[in-house]
Design a protein around this nucleic acid. Structure first.
Length: 825
RNA sequence: GCCGGAGUGGCGGAAUUGGCAGACGCACAGGACUUAAAAUCCUGCGAUCCUUACCGAUCGUACCGGUUCGACCCCGGUCUCCGGCACCA
């Protein structure tokens, strides 16, 4: 070890050694407790950013700590390597997507290596590799066989920028989450996965304790996304017709206040109902107008209500009243039945609509609120209350009227209790090239048939022209499309769409448990040994999409008998963003700090230390160049401490005896630090406070070593343990210092140190004396004094007596080892 | 609109169960070492007031109020910021 801290040499030296020794290889071991720590694998854009560094630094500390703490740790890494950017590069530069992607993967592997992360690279998984997507296709076929995958024509979200369809979850505020184009609707025949079959289970597990290790924020977001609502379907007859229109409502109690009905412009019988009437032209015109709106326009809540009367009336089954039927775009075909009953008194949308079209507003719930005049409503009153104008349910509480009316509707055979979910089935077809081919074949005689499993993988063709326009680029392949039917052997055509890349990332954590298996998707025994993931770490932006898809996949695979667990991630940590000057790092703002630059200037250990120290992991972190300097200074300070120690004492000695107050103090701080780091890293992931306590220890060692009666043995112990507890955070420098202290093994194979309870008990403690809750005095008293004894000693202390002079003591509260509060006047 | 979360020095943050607010670090200021600089080391660092100084006093965790011997922490209300959902009947 040199006198100066030359991080670059040190980091290269140990990275090489770890690679040569295969230091982080993991194998199943039934005799050891397993721990699976996983960071969300990256898309191989080619460059690591600070968000990655933060994500992987957190994971690495946990992995290294758990390993030292005696666990059999699985800590793998891979690449989510299908996706649009590779294809865009092909359009722009003519580089084949595969070449572009593999180049990027190799660059990112190098960058990850520079961070000194403890991955078992033998388990690397890349989703664009045929060894992986072969099993992706296999899973799809199992889903298809179980009825979980189906093809259907539907109005779907279409992104004109990416020239592909999108899942509901990928449409954000009416825009494509990737490119920001306004999303439009298109009628297309597409593949779906039946995630709605799992809606109830996905929802239930959010609240039944299975996901208690998740941030409640994420659970609430998923809950809202699934959006369960319990209500009632009620049938309305259409006047002078055999047709029945069924509405869905959560407020069947208000049915007596229905003054109109609205159906969606896509309602299947709408055109038939107006055919040949004077209403045909205006209705068609309206539908046409709606079809030309994009999602942003159509779903804007600030829009004034629009709609047209369709010339028909429905009959309220409870009152017999005839009500006009309208079509309006505020009613969505995709939710409920596509028809609603209009109760303007108690639903704001219906209120707005009634005002616009001059329809009757009949109050049926009295909220018993002096501020609300029910007979002259200024806005809809959604509050609960007492039923009025509602026939036999008058006087009932509205919350009691709901079950009563559901019951009644069921008895009369005109309705039933219904549960609706906001969650829709997952549209997984993409009109793109760089993704897993959907392994389905269309035969004129047999229809859609899955490829035979022994023929998997269905390889991506390479004779492709990339234009960025039209249908899937795969259509341009001369070799791919034509095949024979796996069922009857006649000529048939392959599906040319590929899968949404979110499928690839929905089960990669399972493949890590058995990544090289070419006989099965993964071995059940291995998967059952490692699963579930004990700690999953990644950005909160995946709270809904990835995390819900992965949960769905795991449940479905569980149901197929492939794995025991049904929830994949026991604990979830959502890390905050890395900002600069309070703003998101971005090229356009020119405030991007590149990890490569920082590593070159300060080394990976400093980068890791700073990023873990600057803020708690789940919070946003503001990058500070000065702060990085501080972390660098600290590592230099530790380095110097060890260097000077060895210069002076060689390997030192382990033997010591606690004699002086200073000995006792250093030993206390040492044990306190071990305790604090163990709890902060092992329990609550407070890496910032763990590091601050290590800094305190270093400060104390510096003070102690200058004392004339400092003991070499105690000093040696403190320095050695310091290196060990710091090792998970800054692995290279600690390895170097550990070696310099005379060790021939790796510091990362050390057992995590335990602390001595006895060392944490001081002879005396400082307690606070308060007068009426205000601190006035501090006293050193014997440790663990009883309440009574503490009170007695405090009142007898001269300084306290002086304070109380001329005052009358009313009450004394004594808390052992903490304080005495004297209430007086 | 609905549902979450947050608000603490000049800055990042700490206070884990209602018990000394501001740990640790950054920045800044002063000093030591040095021919000088860097590096390093030492000291100070919430506000206001008092005092020559030491000592001390009062206020202070977004704002207003409450509970309590005692509140950054619990309760009620208000404001601001951030995130999610949103014409889902």
């Amino acid at each position: 070890m040199k006198e100066r801290y030359e991080f670059s040499l040190i980091e290269k030296k140990w990275q090489k050694k770890w690679a040569e020794d295969d230091a982080f290889k993991t194998v199943e071991d039934e005799n050891k407790k397993k721990y699976y720590v996983l960071e969300m694998f990256p898309y191989p854009s080619g460059k690591l950013h600070m968000g990655h560094v933060r994500n992987y630094s957190i994971g690495d500390v946990v992995a290294r700590f758990k390993k030292m703490d005696g666990y059999n740790v699985l800590h793998p890494m891979g690449f989510d390597s299908f996706g649009l950017p590779a294809e865009n590069a092909a359009i722009k530069n003519g580089t084949p997507p595969a070449d572009w992607t593999w180049n990027n993967i190799h660059e990112m592997e190098d960058q990850l290596a520079e961070l000194g992360l403890s991955y078992d690279w033998k388990r690397e998984v890349c989703t664009c590799h045929p060894d992986y997507y072969r099993w992706m296709q296999w899973i799809f076929i199992q889903f298809y066989k179980k009825g979980l995958a189906y093809k259907k024509e539907n109005p779907v979200n279409w992104c004109p920028g990416c020239q592909t369809v999108l899942a509901n979850e990928q449409v954000v505020d009416g825009e494509c989450e990737r490119c920001g184009s306004a999303v439009t609707k298109k009628n297309l025949s597409q593949w779906y996965l039946k995630i709605t079959d799992y809606a109830d289970r996905l929802l239930e597990n959010l609240d039944n304790g299975k996901l208690d290790g998740w941030p409640s924020k994420v659970r609430i977001m998923q809950k809202n996304w699934i959006g369960k609502s319990t209500g009632c379907e009620v049938q309305f007859k259409v006047k002078d017709s055999d047709e029945i229109m069924t509405v869905f409502t959560t407020r069947v109690d208000t049915i007596y206040g229905t003054s109109f009905m609205v159906i969606a412009p896509e309602y299947p019988t709408l055109l038939k109902n107006v055919e040949g009437t004077e209403y045909e032209a205006p209705v068609k015109e309206y539908i046409d107008k709606v079809n030309h709106m994009n999602e942003i326009e159509r779903t804007s809540t600030t829009n004034e209500k629009t709609g047209v009367f369709i010339g028909k009336y429905a009959i309220n089954p409870f009152t017999g009243k005839e009500i006009p039927i309208y079509t309006a775009d505020y009613v969505l075909m995709g939710y409920g039945t596509g028809a609603v009953m209009g109760v303007p008194g108690h639903d704001q949308r219906d209120f707005d609509f009634a005002k616009k079209f001059g329809l009757e507003i009949l109050p049926v719930v009295d909220p018993q609120d002096p501020e609300v005049d029910v007979n002259n409503l200024k806005e809809a009153c959604a509050a609960k209350g007492i039923m009025i104008n509602s026939g036999e349910i008058n006087g009932m509480k509205s919350e009691d009227a709901i079950p009563y009316m559901i019951n009644k509707a069921e008895e009369l055979g005109i309705g039933k209790k219904t549960i609706n979910f906001r969650l829709r089935d997952w549209l997984i077809s993409r009109q793109r090239y760089w993704g897993t081919p959907i392994p389905m074949i269309y035969c004129d005689d047999c229809g859609w048939v899955p490829e035979k499993e022994e023929n998997l993988p269905v390889l991506l063709p390479t004779d492709i022209e990339f234009t960025g326009k039209g249908q899937s680029p795969i259509a341009s392949s001369k070799t791919f499309v034509n095949t024979t039917c796996p069922c009857c052997g006649k000529p048939a055509k392959r599906e040319i769409d590929t899968m949404d890349t979110f499928l690839d990332s929905s089960w990669y954590f399972l493949r890590y448990t058995d990544p090289k298996n070419d006989k099965e998707v993964f071995n059940k025994k291995k998967a059952d040994y490692w699963m579930d993931v004990d700690q999953y770490i990644g950005g909160v932006e995946h709270a809904i999409l990835h995390l819900m898809y992965a949960r769905f996949f795991t449940m479905a695979l569980h149901d197929l008998g492939l794995v025991d667990v049904e929830e994949p991630f026991k604990n979830l940590l959502t890390q905050g963003m890395v900002n600069k000057d309070g703003k998101k790092m971005s090229k356009s703002l020119g405030n991007v700090v590149s990890p490569a630059e920082i590593i070159e200037k300060y080394g990976a250990d400093t980068a890791r230390l700073f990023i873990l120290f600057a803020a708690p992991p789940e919070r946003e972190l503001d990058w500070s160049d000065d702060g990085v300097d501080g972390s660098f200074r600290f590592l230099n300070r530790v380095y110097r401490l060890v260097y000077e120690f060895v210069e002076k004492y060689g390997q030192g000695t382990d033997e010591f005896e606690i004699k002086t107050k200073d000995d006792k103090n250093l030993n206390y701080v040492l044990n306190q630090t071990i305790k604090k780091v163990s709890e902060d890293v092992g329990g609550r992931f407070a890496f910032n406070t763990a590091i601050s306590s290590i800094m305190t220890l270093v400060n104390e060692i510096y003070k102690y070593k200058e004392l004339p009666n400092a003991q070499v043995g105690l000093l040696t112990t403190a320095v050695k343990k310091l290196i060990v507890v710091l090792a998970p955070f800054t692995p290279h420098i600690c390895e170097e210092m550990f070696e310099h202290m005379g060790n021939t093994t790796s510091v990362h194979n050390e057992s995590w140190p335990t602390y001595d309870e006895k060392a944490l008990v001081m002879d005396t403690v400082e307690i606070v004396v308060q007068l009426n809750g205000k601190v006035k005095e501090k006293l050193d008293v014997e440790n663990n004094l009883s309440r009574e004894e503490l009170e007695k000693q405090a009142l007898e202390a001269d300084s306290v007596k002086a304070l109380l002079e001329g005052k009358q003591v009313i009450k004394v509260i004594a808390v052992p080892n903490r304080l005495v509060n004297i209430v007086c006047k």
